[in-house]
């Protein structure tokens, strides 16, 4: 289970802690990496900037991506993830407060795998995180690791 990393891109400290708490409460013990803005998310994924020494062979099992992120917007992060050979097949779940039609449309147009609105109700939020973890970490078969990432 060690290589099944969950990458969370979240700038709101409260939401971050609640998400972590919900994961913990649901006994999801995978390694969790939290990045706090869009640039950091890209740095982590492509081994640049503050993450230049990261081993890129360890690709996150799933990325939980907020839309409203500082520096680089979540939708822009998604675009670049899909544009890059190394991350094109990585599952990306949009997890955001917004349920606006244009956000949903933009997310799916850029090939997000899933779109979940964070409920206000924490019980529902906990349920959503549990289902999400169960689905993407256990039930879902991940895509094969890209060759370019393996050889680089």
């Amino acid at each position: 289970m060690k290589n099944k990393v969950i990458l969370i891109a979240e700038d709101n400290a409260n939401d971050e802690e609640l998400t972590l708490r919900a994961l913990r409460k649901n006994n999801i013990s995978n390694e969790i990496v939290v990045v706090r803005d869009g640039q950091e998310a890209l740095d982590y994924l492509f081994g640049t900037g503050s993450h230049s020494d990261r081993d890129l062979t360890h690709r996150p099992q799933v990325m939980l991506l907020d839309i409203n992120l500082p520096k680089v917007n979540g939708l822009e992060v998604l675009k670049r993830v899909r544009a890059d050979e190394r991350t094109r097949t990585m599952p990306v779940v949009i997890l955001t407060s917004s349920a606006e039609e244009r956000d949903r449309l933009a997310a799916y147009s850029n090939f997000a795998n899933s779109y979940i609105q964070k409920p206000v109700n924490f019980d529902q939020f906990t349920d959503a995180v549990r289902d999400l973890g169960l689905y993407w970490l256990v039930l879902n078969e991940p895509p094969p690791r890209p060759r370019s990432a393996a050889t680089s």
Binding site: L18, S98, V120
Partner: peptide, 13 residues
């Protein structure tokens, strides 16, 4: 929709 819901979620959570 985005900014008012986040604090509420924090309060409830």
């Amino acid at each position: 929709s985005h900014d008012l819901r986040a604090p509420l979620r924090a309060i409830d959570g």
